[in-house]
Nucleic acid binder design. Structure first.
Length: 255
DNA sequence: ATGCCTTATTTCATAAGA
């Protein structure tokens, strides 16, 4: 089973790249973030053999799940999901091939003194409670997506450049550890080039070319899934070329 | 010290991203 997650930064703009990548990588389940549309282009991916579930309502955010191994019991959002002020389209879950899979787009946080930062922490805390309930059932669970937090200093190109910024604060990293404390494992993917497991590079200033990136797209899985992992990689080829997303897909293979 | 790029939208300007 091949599981992948990719922040596409608009599925409408990225549709040619998405179709190309599905044909190339052939994931069984793909979690998408920042689809940025209320009308997911379902027909185009259904033509490639995928079932689709999408949760989006317009200009920002938006998540989706694509699966060719079943897509059942779809959840749009999770119980008691915080909003800003109303819940946004940042989470979608479904049962695929016997596993509970979530595609997540964690709030950015903007700056540490912005109300959006507290919203981010609240959202992560509520996510923990919701996922704890699913893990407690004993089912295999994987939460995948753009967490907007770099777990360690090794996950940013220069820690000194992030002092005082969001994505690296103790509180955000503690929120990730609280998720791991549920019994989840961080499936760290291998970069296809170099030593940095980055998944995001800003469009500006040649950041990708200089490998000035961050690892913020994560796959956290229960031991029942993590023990089946045969490989995991970041598809940086998808970050190259014409009209790429600013994120690369993370691909996890399971026995 | 700052912009650098890309997106969608009640578009020739703005908000947001991280």
């Amino acid at each position: 089973m091949r599981l992948a997650t990719w922040n596409v930064n608009s599925v409408s703009s990225r549709l040619p790249r998405l179709v190309e990548w599905l044909d190339l990588a052939k994931p069984d389940v793909l979690c998408l973030q920042e689809t940025k549309t209320a009308e997911f282009p379902a027909a185009e991916v259904e033509a490639l053999g995928y079932q689709v579930a999408a949760h989006g309502n317009g200009r920002w955010n938006g998540v989706a799940l694509l699966s060719r191994i079943g897509l059942d019991d779809v959840s749009l959002g999770f119980p008691d999901e915080p909003g800003y002020p109303d819940p946004e389209t940042r989470a979608i879950g479904a049962t695929c091939g016997g596993a509970r899979i979530w595609s997540l787009y964690v709030p950015n946080g903007r700056t540490v003194d912005d109300p959006h930062y507290q919203y981010k922490l609240s959202w992560l805390a509520a996510l923990k409670t919701a996922i704890a309930a699913e893990v407690a059932t004993g089912a295999p669970v994987a939460i995948c997506g753009d967490f907007n937090v770099a777990p360690t200093d090794a996950d940013v190109w220069d820690p000194s450049a992030f002092v005082g910024s969001t994505h690296v604060t103790d509180a955000e990293r503690a929120a990730l550890r609280a998720l791991l404390d549920l019994g989840l494992v961080d499936i760290i993917p291998k970069p296809m080039k170099g030593n940095n497991p980055f998944t995001y590079w800003d469009y500006r200033a040649g950041m990708f070319h200089k490998d000035m990136g961050m690892r913020i797209d994560l796959v956290y899985a229960t031991e029942s899934l993590a023990g089946r992992v045969t490989g995991a990689y970041i598809d940086r080829e998808a970050r190259k070329g014409k009209s790429p997303s600013d994120h690369a897909p993370v691909v996890v293979d399971l026995d």
